[in-house]
Nucleic acid binder design. Sequence first.
DNA 1: ACCTGAACACCGTTCAAGT
DNA 2: ACCTGAACACCGTTCAAGT
Lengths: 197, 197
Amino acid sequence: MSVEAAAPTRPMRADARRNYEAIVRVASEAFAEHGTQTSLDDIASRAGVGPGTLYRHFPNRDCLLEASLVDSRHRLLALGERLLDADDADDALDEWMFALARHAGTWDGLADSIAQSLNNEKSPLGASCGAVITATRKLLERATALGSVTADASARELFIMAGSLAWAADRAARGEGSGTGEDELPRLLALLMRGLR
Amino acid sequence: MSVEAAAPTRPMRADARRNYEAIVRVASEAFAEHGTQTSLDDIASRAGVGPGTLYRHFPNRDCLLEASLVDSRHRLLALGERLLDADDADDALDEWMFALARHAGTWDGLADSIAQSLNNEKSPLGASCGAVITATRKLLERATALGSVTADASARELFIMAGSLAWAADRAARGEGSGTGEDELPRLLALLMRGLR
DNA sequence: ACCTGAACACCGTTCAAGT
DNA sequence: ACCTGAACACCGTTCAAGT
């Protein structure tokens, strides 16, 4: 199917693998702490490697984001599989959209990074979203077949809207009053799903 | 009302005013071309001033964004006044939300800059949003009194959601297929308003 | 009072030199 | 094959020196 030959990827050298994993681990912490725009230089030094090593493994920021998200996306897709077997297709779609928004809201700025990457042919982050959008389409079609979802919206739009809601909930939650901002994602999502039906 | 004494702002020196205006004019072009994260250094040189002059007039990026938006916001608020006199409070709210989203979508990244500034006490951009949120509240209350808007959402949330939709429409429009991405804002907004009712 | 531009700290990215 | 860290270009921000 693919044009490029399947690279006979030999196992990584032990020190290379050690560095790779250290970088991903540190990156996840840094993204969680300072958002997706945190300094790559800083990640490299915190991982105990030179900037060149980071760039050798991850040619750009999107590659590092992608690598740091594989586990989370794997869990997300597994949930999608399970939801396809759920009795209530409506509830399943709700739950999926919620999980999708949570995924996009993992780190500050992630929803933006993902949405930007969607239009970028070169980005591995954007490419990896394909499977997630496909899962969204299946769940959407099941709910549409039930007749409860009437508004026409594509799976790609739902995917973007999930990110948009994560974005909005994050912004709405901060500095609301004196207290800690509450989680508004469920309410905003309910608003959207009401509009779909 | 305000604690700080009203500064007896004397008129600007002619050359200072000339520079101020040149910077704002160039900034608007640059923001339109490269988004709100464009280089301030570049704006300064394009305006024919040193970086120090730009920072003297606009201590940070938000100040420059704010100055570049005053005209647009003035027009927006004028529309808000007119809509308060409209016959149909529902239509008025729709039209307001559309204008709000368009405003937030003026430049790439503006919705994000605005939302970030909302939680930042120091930002003049965030401060200036107060009047817009107040206008949103009045229009929302009018529509709520009519009984058509049932979901409870605060004016602040609607303000953020307008930005969120501008964000989503912008991301959804790009690179959709081969053709030029179409404007999805009206549809996404209709979805939200349906959910509110 | 205002402007200028050198200067500083920082960041992304590359690459020649090492092992 | 992989790593290192110096090096480059760039950007935001400050400030001493000018007018």
